[in-house]
């Protein structure tokens, strides 16, 4: 399943999204959000992800909400990203908004 993307191209993130390069990824996303009112993140299903990246996206969502911008994922969480969400306790008691953001589930 995919969502309808706004006109601008998504930000394609690198294949490694772990603490090793998390500072660089933060700069990349922050810069992209500053230049796009709706920022779409393209995370490859094969991307290597750890908890620092999930925390980074949670933080970016907060920033988008505070600035009346939008942050979206180009595709539902899969691969490593889904695994980290599950192991990290993000899927239990997930709010409808969070489920829509991470998994592209329709809000009732």
């Amino acid at each position: 399943m995919s969502i309808t993307l706004p006109g601008d191209a998504p930000l394609t993130l690198p294949a490694s999204l772990t603490i090793k390069n998390i500072s660089a990824v933060r700069e990349m996303i922050l810069d992209f959000m500053n230049n796009n009112s709706t920022a779409v993140l393209d995370i490859d299903e094969e991307a290597q992800v750890d908890l620092s990246f999930v925390q980074l996206v949670v933080s970016a969502r907060k920033q988008a909400e505070a600035g009346e911008g939008r942050l979206l994922l180009a595709r539902p969480a899969a691969g490593d990203l889904y695994d980290v969400l599950k192991r990290g306790g993000f899927l239990d008691a997930m709010t409808p908004e969070a489920a829509h953001f991470w998994l592209h589930q329709e809000k009732n």
Binding site: I22, S52, L56, A60, K62, D92
Partner: peptide
Amino acid sequence: CRIVADAAKVPVLAALDPRDIHLAWDV
């Protein structure tokens, strides 16, 4: 086990040191 992440203390991106951890858990 039922694990719920608590992101209340995660700051906005501009204020985040991404190497630090701000998440908490309720298990």
